[in-house]
Amino acid sequence: MNDIRKNWTWFILIMALILGVGIYLGQSRRTELGKSFDYSLDEYRQVDPSLIHYTEVEPLVPTLGKISALAVAPDGKIYVGGEDAVQVFPDGGTFPVDGIPTCMAVDDDGTMFVGMQDHVEIRSKNWEKTVWPSPGGKAYLTSIVVDDEYVYVADAGNRRVWRYDKAGGKPLEIGRKDSANGVRGFNIPSPFFDVDLGPDGSLWAVNPGYHALENYRPDGMPISSWEKSSFMIEGFSGCCNPSHFALMPDGSFVTAEKGLPRVKIHNVDGSLRCVVAAPDQFDEGVVGLDVAVDDEGRIYVLDPNRNQVRIFEEKE
């Protein structure tokens, strides 16, 4: 009997030892990764407070969900597109649309040009709808601007800006690679591709893959450009920034970025003028900070995470 007990004791001990060694080996792998495995953007999130020349005031809080498009009309009204509707501030009411607009512009006479992902819908003042055919291909419309003659539509999917007449029809293609004329083509890795009009009426388009802003004549010929790649506050970082921009009345650029969410103003030559909002003023990971500017230089930032249009005014 004693022998049996002894044998079983040994058997259990050996099994326990094997189990113990297994557990030890498993646990012993639980070391931390070394310093070279640290990934931190904290350094780049810090902004010198003296660079921040703007202060935030009360935001606009739309009653729509999923806000995604922003425009300042020539009469100063703010148009916000979201889930199945467009809301106009102040007190302009809410108008239904079929889906979520991806971009929007408003003409002098109140006509709205609404980008619905792959096509443009025109809404007259009386909310009558006209639909322009989609540019086709992989169309993904991300920005619209309108002047007296033309409607410019940025198409991130096809990497083109389409210039339409006010009546629609076949658009002129802007941005096809044309080395002879100095057009390198738009490099758009993700669906962020913004356009705006300069004070002289010429077209500005962001070329996000190059961290560049490019200026074109209405016929698509390039005029000038500037670019700045840097994680530092002076430049743009990541694979596609600035994600949005708008021109100030004096021709300087308000830019918004994704990755390191921040809103800044760059002078006409691209040099940094000041910061409007630093990364710590936004939720981490926010994307789609569309920006717009009114005649007084007030800056509107569509914040999809908070579902608000945040407003920034220059400090006294």
Binding site: N187, I188, P189, G209, H211, F231, S237, G238, C239, G259
Partner: peptide, 18 residues
Amino acid sequence: CGYCDLCGGYLRPDAKKR
């Protein structure tokens, strides 16, 4: 993938060159 020149997965945030 966007086949980006400035790939956030390939380049360090403080990379001097692409």
